[in-house]
Design a protein around this nucleic acid. Structure first.
Length: 195
DNA sequence: AAACAACTCAACCGCTATGAC
DNA sequence: TGTCATAGCGGTTGAGTTGTT
């Protein structure tokens, strides 16, 4: 029997979460804490895998989660970060308070991918990151692509000089007044924490 | 109103990283 | 050092929704 078929026939529940399941999971996490998802899965009595519980909590139930449409600032930041990092959704989401990697990824695939492509077509040729050919490496997941030196990366992306995404000589630090400021210093610290 | 296509997004899958033993 | 269990990540799927003919 196929592995996948075996899983489907097991008694682990899958599919959309019901509101009552959310309530149970929330109570369980609040009383036992985040972390041991296999244990939470057992304690909750929900026939969900630990993995499924973790995902549901992380993407929908945890406090301070932000739902709804992306602001123009958020869109802009996603495009810029994607230009630098490629499909490193968790890193990108880390700079968007209240947004999850899954949400950022979905938003990119459904909305911004086209927008970004059209910008690239209309603008000058740019260095582009991709999962296959990352412009830089964070050193967090070395299995993804080859390492490049910081110097090469700065040269390739023109990181500290120009707006890489738009291909125009705009300063990277935006004028936005909220916390969605693309600050190269903090971004650099995120990417190279040991330097 | 019905049929079909296109889109959206929640959830799942497979893989890698990490930590405990 | 090797093995196992678990967490986390990115890619993919598929059900539901919306738009078009």
């Amino acid at each position: 029997m196929e592995k996948r078929e075996e899983k489907r026939k097991s008694n682990v529940k899958r599919g959309l979460w019901k509101p009552e399941e959310d309530v149970i999971l929330r109570r369980c996490v609040e009383s036992h804490g985040e972390g041991n998802w296999a244990d939470i899965s057992r304690r909750s009595g929900l026939k969900r895998s630990g993995k499924s519980c973790r995902l549901r909590w992380k993407n929908y139930l945890r406090p301070n989660i932000k739902r709804g449409g992306m602001s123009p600032q958020e869109q802009d930041l996603i495009i810029r970060m994607h230009k630098l990092l490629g499909n490193r959704w968790s890193l990108i989401a880390g700079r968007l308070p209240g947004r999850t990697d899954n949400e950022v990824k979905n938003y990119w695939n459904t909305h911004l991918n086209k927008k970004s492509n059209s910008r690239i077509q209309n603008g000058p040729e740019l260095v582009e990151a991709s999962p296959d050919k990352p412009v830089m490496s964070t050193g967090v997941r070395q299995s993804h692509g080859e390492e490049v030196t910081i110097t090469n990366w700065v040269e390739e992306t023109n990181y500290f000089g120009y707006d890489v995404c738009m291909g125009s000589p705009l300063p990277l630090i935006s004028h936005y007044t909220d916390n969605l400021v693309f600050d190269p210093c903090s971004a650099f610290a995120d990417f190279f924490p040991l330097l």
